[in-house]
Design a protein around this nucleic acid. Structure first.
Length: 259
DNA sequence: CCAGACGTTGTT
DNA sequence: GTCTGG
DNA sequence: CCAGACGTTGTT
DNA sequence: GTCTGG
């Protein structure tokens, strides 16, 4: 799945990667969580033939898609992911899937591996070749009862590729640069035409870096949260190497008596 | 027809 | 346990 | 995704 | 808004 991302490339690098002329300046963000603004790239408005107008546009959207028909967002869970296998038919995603497919350029994402004993080992995953990666996304504009509009977005997920499975069974959908135009072209490409793009990334596309639990806290936003650490041991902690002394007096059964 | 849901992940 | 906030 | 809150009345 | 369930 994908519930935390990092966006640390420069605006210039990001603009070049997604085929946009220019982007407003923004700082590197090492720890971006749902509900926060993320950069979303979409196909631009239709152009007359030979026009110089850009064919792509970028915008900020709240990470957490709110379907257009939503009356009260509090009634919905936070839709920061959408399952690619079913998004075409789900009420919450189908219109966005048809009309508002998007790319979300990131430097990488974080994934948590569950270990025995409620422990979790976070990993930072970034493209092995370096640079940026484009995640498949959906955009939806929600109109508040008051009248103002909020742009929102979700990241599509698919099954994890083989090398990622030991961490988690889901991962974000990655769109390769040669497929950007087709993915974004909602005019001529029906959802079923781009379904084959929503597949697990090529194995070993991502480098997996175990990182400390610093990333857990959204308030930690510095580059040090991506420092490699020794991962927690896979096995449950060694049990009773030094057996604990029985704490209770033998005469006490340890049960609280209610009366 | 109207009422009510509309979601992901993970876990059992 | 469940919801909200980031 | 994870972390942290989760409440009322009344008074300043 | 659109689909499902009754």
């Amino acid at each position: 799945m994908c519930g935390r991302i990092a966006v640390i490339a420069s605006p210039e690098e990001t603009a070049a990667f997604v085929g946009i002329g220019e982007l407003e300046s923004f700082p590197p963000r090492y720890n971006v969580a749902p509900t926060q603004p993320i950069l979303v790239v979409m196909a631009g408005p239709q152009r007359p033939p030979g026009s110089n107008l850009p064919d792509r546009m970028a915008m900020l959207a709240r990470w957490g898609l709110i379907p257009a028909w939503t009356k009260n967002p509090a009634d919905m869970p936070l839709l920061f992911n959408a399952r690619s296998e079913s998004a075409i038919e789900k009420a919450s995603f189908k219109t966005a899937m048809r009309h508002r497919r998007a790319l979300i350029p990131v430097s990488g994402f974080y994934e948590w591996k569950k270990l025995p004993g409620n422990r979790r080992q976070p990993y930072w995953l970034r493209p092995r070749k370096g640079g940026l990666v484009a995640l498949a996304g959906l955009m939806e504009t929600w109109s508040e009862p008051g009248g103002s509009e909020i742009d929102t977005a979700a990241i599509l997920t698919t099954g994890a590729s083989a090398d990622i499975l030991h961490i988690h069974d889901r991962m974000p959908v990655v769109i390769q640069p040669e497929d950007f135009a087709r993915w974004l072209d909602c005019r001529t490409q029906e959802p079923r035409d781009v379904a084959e793009l929503m597949r697990p990334a090529q194995p070993d596309f991502f480098e997996q870096i175990p990182v400390s639990e610093m990333v857990n806290k959204v308030a930690n936003v510095g580059p040090e949260i991506q420092d490699r650490v020794e991962p927690l041991p896979e096995a449950a902690p060694e049990r009773a190497a030094k057996p604990k002394v029985e704490k209770r007096k033998s005469s006490d059964d340890g049960q609280m008596k209610l009366f």
